[in-house]
Structure formats: structure tokens, C-alpha cells
Design a binder for these strands. Structure first.
Length: 168
DNA sequence: GCCAACGTTGGC
DNA sequence: GCCAACGTTGGC
């Protein structure tokens, strides 16, 4: 199956692109997704090798796309924080036997030389229809068209040769 | 910190 | 199955 393109949102105070970069093997599991639409996308659509724009939400002037990551788990697997009573992501309706939520692993790939702010994306000519610039779009995992994905990379200051080298 | 958007819950 | 109340997201 052809790889897919995504945008993943994270509040940088909670988990930033730099956090991901500093993880062992620059890889971390993406836990805590508690929205059915986002879960279904992860569970049914995401697979190893998929590319994701890393977006910082709720970050004042820094709100926007900051870099790239990639799915490195084969596919989605149960989010074990959902049945851990000590976790803030605990959900009493989820259990090890019957997990309600899933997660995937993401690996750091690139940091944009410059922030692509939400405003920049809204103003861009070539991003019509991109979900993140729609009003009230709160989904934390969004599918992105490849042409939009590449356009955001360009706006972030990646050179054509670098984009090619990333296999995009 | 405000509040619009919108997802979820639960009474009926 | 409707919909009001409530909770959360996230831009500003």
C-alpha cells in the first residue's frame, strides 16, 4: 500500500518536536489519543513508513508546523496508558483484554528551518482544502494530501533536494 | 483567560 | 434517536 501523509498536533508544553528528537532512537509512542475519529484513522489507516507533519498547537506565536516525523510501528497497537489508573489518559472503559484506544510510534525526521505558522498556511495559495486551516478543526490527527504536505515542507524552508532526499 | 466550535453523555 | 447540558480543544 502506498504511504500516506498526515498532520499530527501536539501542545509543545506537553510534547514538542524537540522532545521527540531527544527520545531514545528519536522515537516515541503517540499515546493519549482519546477521540474516536483520530483513533479510527490510526487504527485503520496508519502504517509503517507514513509521513507526518508535526504541528504545535496552543502555542501562541509558535503555533504551526515545525517539522516532520514518520510512523515506525508496523501499525497501531493498544494504548496501554488507557488501562493504567495512574495515567492521566486512564479510561475505565478500556482494559488490556478489550482495549478501546490505540497508538503508533513516531520517529523524528526533520525540523523546518522556519516555522510555518497557522496564519502562513491560511494565507498560502496552494493549501486550499487542507483540514488544519479550517475553522474549528480540532482533530488531533488529520490526513493531508501529498501536494499539501510537500508545499508545507517548502514553506518551512526545506530545499527541493532535501525534500527529495527525505523520499517525499 | 475568553469563548467558538464541536464531540460526548445521558435523560427522556 | 433526539437534543440539552457539559466538557474539551485550541485560536486569539
Amino acid at each position: 500500500m502506498a504511504k500516506k501523509y498526515w498532520l499530527i498536533k501536539s501542545e509543545p508544553d506537553v510534547f514538542s518536536l524537540d522532545h521527540l528528537k531527544n527520545c531514545p532512537d528519536q522515537t516515541e509512542h503517540w499515546d493519549g489519543i482519546r477521540n474516536y475519529q483520530a483513533r479510527n484513522l490510526m487504527r485503520d489507516e496508519m502504517q509503517e513508513g507514513d509521513e507526518a507533519i508535526f504541528y504545535h498547537s496552543n502555542a501562541g506565536k509558535e503555533t504551526g508546523a515545525v517539522g516532520l516525523s514518520r510512523v515506525v510501528s508496523e501499525s497501531a497497537y493498544p494504548d496501554y496508558t488507557s488501562w493504567d489508573p495512574k495515567s492521566k489518559y486512564y479510561d475505565e472503559k478500556s482494559s488490556e483484554e478489550n482495549p478501546r484506544w490505540v497508538m503508533v510510534d513516531f520517529k523524528w525526521r526533520a525540523e523546518f528551518p522556519k516555522l510555518v505558522s497557522l496564519q502562513d498556511m491560511k494565507k498560502a495559495d496552494n493549501l486550499d482544502g487542507m483540514l488544519v486551516i479550517k475553522q474549528g478543526q480540532r482533530l488531533s490527527i488529520q490526513p493531508v494530501e501529498k501536494k499539501h504536505f510537500v508545499e508545507v515542507c517548502k514553506m518551512g524552508g526545506l530545499k527541493a533536494s532535501e525534500i527529495k532526499a527525505l523520499g517525499l
